[in-house]
Design a binder for these strands. Sequence first.
DNA 1: TTAAGTGCAAATTATTTGCAGTAAG
DNA 2: CTTACTGCAAATAATTTGCACTTAA
Lengths: 143, 143
Amino acid sequence: MTQMQDRRRAEAWLQSGGVRPTRPRMLLAALLVGDGRHRHVTAESLVDAVKDSGEKVAVATVYNTLKAFSDAGLLREITVNGTRSYFDTDTSNHAHFYWEDTGELADAGNDGAEHQIAVSNLPPAPSGTEISKVDVVIRLRRT
Amino acid sequence: MTQMQDRRRAEAWLQSGGVRPTRPRMLLAALLVGDGRHRHVTAESLVDAVKDSGEKVAVATVYNTLKAFSDAGLLREITVNGTRSYFDTDTSNHAHFYWEDTGELADAGNDGAEHQIAVSNLPPAPSGTEISKVDVVIRLRRT
DNA sequence: TTAAGTGCAAATTATTTGCAGTAAG
DNA sequence: CTTACTGCAAATAATTTGCACTTAA
């Protein structure tokens, strides 16, 4: 029942990105958006989720698929740390908290409207270019 | 004459960070801040600059030194791209343009006061943490 | 049937580390 | 003196790539 809904959402999601629903992609899509919630993943965390699901997908395929999903606009890649790429199922412009010690990443300011971050007075894109996205990362350290 | 000024600035800079002025550090400092201007470098670009200067510093030392300078608060590390770290001699919070195709990094909105980017309504740092810095990266693609 | 996708292992790339010398305070 | 720094080579770690199958359309 939940499985069924997950598959339905996953399939619709892939379709909305114009991505062919292969077996590995369906599984990854279900793990990413099956429950209808947004999440942040790394290649590693997704590989672990695959393991936990009992299915098998090659590590390289996880990497390639994350990139394919990002290219299709289904995921947003977030670079906070030279050694690991994060992917967010929420592709809108929104700020993130990043814990420098643990490497945890979370949405910032989604605890109600009063803390909606605003970036104002953006300079115009240099001629010959356009803004593809604006990343705002609030780096945190333990006190 | 210029060389002399460069050395003077480099030494003062190291001193302000409480970093011991060794031969490699003096050279790298001179390349980084000798002319009194701010710049963005990568380990690779700095290695090249060392070569051009006619001096020799081990690649590992360039990496270690960039990290040491960052730890001392003399440089600000900027992560825009999983595969390369950038270092900015301007350690203040300020936004950057990043060209996705060439990997070029530049200050944004420093063309006068009218385009001073403002990030407002920052959410409070989660308890037990404090904000170490806020990174704003405006990613550009060619049109 | 055919272009795209997958699995696996090997390759790549930026960066880090171990360790034997060197040098700064 | 003695603790930190440097150079070099080898080690890491995340990611990418090459290539022989598969599979979706």
